[in-house]
C-alpha cells in the first residue's frame, strides 16, 4: 500500500498551508483525530501524537487566554512529539506562536474553510478509507440497482462481456478486471477501480472501451459496497451446486462474509441476465422475501397433505 501523506490530504480537502511546508511529506497512519484542548491546559499524559491534530475555535480561543510562557512551552510540547500535522478549522485563528513552531519543527499548520464539526465528520470516513488495507481481486464489480455484485471467473469466461451488457442495460460499472477492496468498517466491504482503469472495460475483439464516453456519465460509479459475489463457471453436470438456492451460501472476502452464487455458463444461458436476476433475488431477500424458502415451505405442505391422503386410503 502507498503511504498516505499530508500533501494528499491538503489536496483533497483544499487546505491552505499556513506554515511548516516541509511537513507535507509526513505520513498519516491513524484515521482518528486528536483535539488537543486538554494538552493546551497542561496535561500531556494522554497526548495522542500519532494522530492528526484538529484545532477548532474552542482550542484556539482557550490558547489565547494562556500566558505567553505557557503558550510557548505547551506548543513546543505539542510539536516536539512530531504529530503528522495541525489542522485549523474555519473559525480557529492560527497564532504566530504556532506558525513559528510549525516552521521550526517542519510540521504543517493547515487551515480549512470548513467548520470543526463538518471537518471532523468528513475526515473520519475519508481517512479510514484511505488508510484501510487494500487487496486486489481479479474480478469485475458492478452496481445492479443498488446491489454491488462482484463477478469472478477464469480469464476468458466473459466477465467483461457480462459487464458491458449490464452497463448497456442501465447498470453501473465500478471496476473491470481488477477490483481493489477494503473494509470501511467491519462487515462493510468497498470496491473501487485502480485509477488507471477507471471507466474502462476491455472487450476481446473490440479493445478498450470507455463506458462513460459510450453510455454517458450514469454508466460509472466511483465505489460500491460489495453485497454479492457471483462466480461464473463452466457448466459441469457433476458440480455440487445449490440447485434451489436454499442454502444462502457465503464467501469470505478479506474479513467479511458476502452472499455467494455460482452460475454455470453455457451457450444457451445469458450470463448477464442471470447475474442481473441473482442481484434481484438478493434484493428481494433484503426486502424479506426468500423465494427458495417459500418454495421449500409449500413443498413441505404438499408432502404433508400427500401423507394424510395416504393414511386415509389405508384406513379405508
Amino acid at each position: 500500500m502507498m503511504d498516505f501523506t499530508v500533501k494528499q490530504l491538503v489536496k483533497d480537502f483544499s487546505l491552505d498551508v499556513v506554515a511548516g511546508e516541509e511537513g507535507l511529506v509526513k505520513i498519516i497512519t491513524e484515521p482518528q483525530l486528536s483535539r488537543p484542548g486538554i494538552e493546551l491546559a497542561g496535561m500531556f499524559d494522554f497526548y495522542e501524537h500519532n494522530r492528526l491534530q484538529l484545532f477548532g475555535s474552542k482550542e484556539a480561543t482557550f490558547f489565547k487566554r494562556l500566558t505567553e510562557n505557557q503558550q510557548v512551552s505547551r506548543v513546543d510540547k505539542l510539536f516536539r512529539k512530531q504529530p503528522p500535522a495541525f489542522l485549523f478549522s474555519k473559525n480557529a485563528e492560527v497564532s504566530d506562536v504556532i506558525k513559528n513552531a510549525g516552521n521550526e519543527h517542519g510540521i504543517c499548520v493547515l487551515k480549512s474553510n470548513e467548520r470543526t464539526s463538518a471537518l471532523a465528520s468528513e475526515l473520519w470516513p475519508y481517512l479510514t478509507a484511505k488508510l484501510a488495507q487494500r487487496q486486489s481481486f481479479h474480478a469485475t464489480l458492478l452496481n445492479i440497482n443498488g446491489i454491488g455484485v462482484l463477478i469472478r471467473g477464469e480469464s476468458g469466461i466473459g466477465k467483461s462481456e457480462v459487464a458491458l451488457e449490464l452497463v448497456r442495460n442501465g447498470h453501473q460499472l465500478v471496476a473491470d478486471d481488477r477490483v481493489d477492496l477494503y473494509e470501511r468498517e467491519a462487515g462493510t466491504l468497498i470496491g473501487e477501480a485502480p485509477d488507471v482503469l477507471k471507466h474502462y472495460l476491455e472487450i476481446r475483439g473490440i479493445g478498450v472501451v470507455d463506458v462513460v464516453k459510450l453510455f454517458g456519465a450514469q454508466a460509472f460509479k466511483e465505489d460500491q459496497t460489495v453485497m454479492l459475489v457471483v462466480d461464473l463457471v463452466d457448466f459441469d453436470k457433476q458440480i455440487d451446486e445449490d440447485r434451489l438456492g436454499i442454502e444462502n451460501r457465503k464467501e469470505k472476502l478479506i474479513n467479511t462474509w458476502v452472499p455467494h452464487a455460482k452460475i454455470p455458463i453455457t451457450a444457451a444461458r445469458s450470463a448477464s441476465m442471470l447475474v442481473e436476476v441473482a442481484a434481484m433475488n438478493l434484493r428481494l431477500k433484503l426486502f424479506g422475501t426468500d423465494m427458495a424458502k417459500d418454495f421449500s415451505e409449500s413443498l413441505n405442505k404438499a408432502i404433508e397433505s400427500n401423507a394424510k391422503k395416504a393414511k386415509k386410503n389405508k384406513g379405508n
Partner: peptide
Amino acid sequence: PAGMHARPATKLVTLANHF
C-alpha cells in the same frame, strides 16, 4: 417421516447426474 423435502431431493438429483 419428513419425506423427500428439498435438501435430500437436490442431493439425490445431483447424484443421479453423476451417471
